[in-house]
Design a protein around this nucleic acid. Structure first.
Lengths: 129, 129
DNA sequence: CTAAGCCTTCCAGTCACTGGAAGGTCAAGG
DNA sequence: CCTTGACCTTCCAGTGACTGGAAGGCTTAG
C-alpha cells in the first residue's frame, strides 16, 4: 500500500504519516522505486496513533502506548497509569479554561458593547482590579 | 527602569519582555549603554498584556486589545467582540477536552490495572470499537 | 582590581505538524 | 512513443509563544 491509500484509510494526512516515520513511530518498508510500502500492521498502528492523538495523548505517550500494545507481556496497570496521568492533565486544562471562561463571561456581561469607549473589560486588563 | 525591575514587577520573565519587544508589542526606549529603558506606561502595558494572556487571549488579540485600550475613540463593542470570540474558542476547547475526559474516564474505569495484559484501553485504541 | 550581578545579542529548541518547491515515477489515453 | 496528471520523493521553512544557553559588555560594591 502506498502512502496515499494509508492516508485516506486512516484519516491522517500524508504529511503526518511521513512525520511519524521521521520520528520513528511507524516505520514502513520501501519499494524498489523508493516509495514507502505499508503493510496492514503499519496501517493498523497508524490508526492506533490517530485515535490516541484524538484522545489528546502526546506523541511520546503514543509511543509508550504502542510499545505496550506490542508487548504481549505487558501489565494493564502500565497502560492505565499513562491514561490516568493524561486524564489528570486534561482535568487541569479544563479547570484552567473554566476559570478563564467564568472571568470572561462576567466581563462580557458587564460590557455595554456600544459605541462608547467606556469598557470594563479593558479596565480589568488595565488594573487587574 | 531596567528590564529586571519590570520583570519582577509584572511577573513576566525578561525573556518574555524581550520577545514582546521583538514582535513590536511593547517598545521601550534605550539608554546610552544600550539597556532598555522602560517608562511607567511601558510597564503598565506589559501588565495589561500579562493579564490578557492569563485570560488566554492570543498575542494578536492582545495587540488588538492594546490598540483599543490606547484609542480614546474606541467603541466598547469592538472590545466586547474580541472577548466574545475568545470566549467561544474557550467553550469549544472545553467541550473537546470534556469529550476526551469522558471517554478516557470510561476506559480507565473499565481497565483492571493489574499485572495481566488484557486492557480495554488498548483495545479501544486498536479497534476504534 | 575584581567579582557578582546585571544587561546585550544571537542561535537553537520546544510540539506536532503544515506548506511549498523541485524533482522522480507510474498508469492511461492519443 | 509521448504526454498528461496524479502520484510519490526529499528538503527547507514556518507556525505560537516562548525558553535555554552561550558569549560578551556594563555597573556597582568591596
Amino acid at each position: 500500500m502506498n502512502i496515499g491509500d494509508v492516508a485516506s484509510r486512516t484519516g491522517l494526512s500524508t504529511k503526518t504519516i511521513r512525520y511519524y516515520e521521521d520520528i520513528g513511530l511507524v516505520m514502513p518498508q520501501r519499494g524498489e522505486n523508493g516509495y514507502r510500502r505499508f503493510r496492514e500492521t503499519d496501517m493498523h498502528k497508524l490508526g492506533f496513533v490517530g485515535r490516541a492523538r484524538a484522545l489528546g495523548f502526546s506523541i511520546e505517550e503514543c509511543r509508550d502506548l504502542l510499545a505496550l500494545y506490542e508487548d504481549e507481556d505487558r501489565a494493564s496497570a502500565d497502560v492505565r497509569q499513562i491514561a490516568i496521568g493524561h486524564l489528570d492533565e486534561i482535568e487541569r486544562k479544563i479547570a484552567a479554561l473554566s476559570d478563564m471562561r467564568d472571568t470572561l463571561k462576567g466581563l462580557v456581561h458587564a460590557c455595554a458593547g456600544d459605541h462608547r469607549p467606556n469598557c470594563p473589560i479593558l479596565k480589568e486588563l488595565s488594573d487587574g482590579a
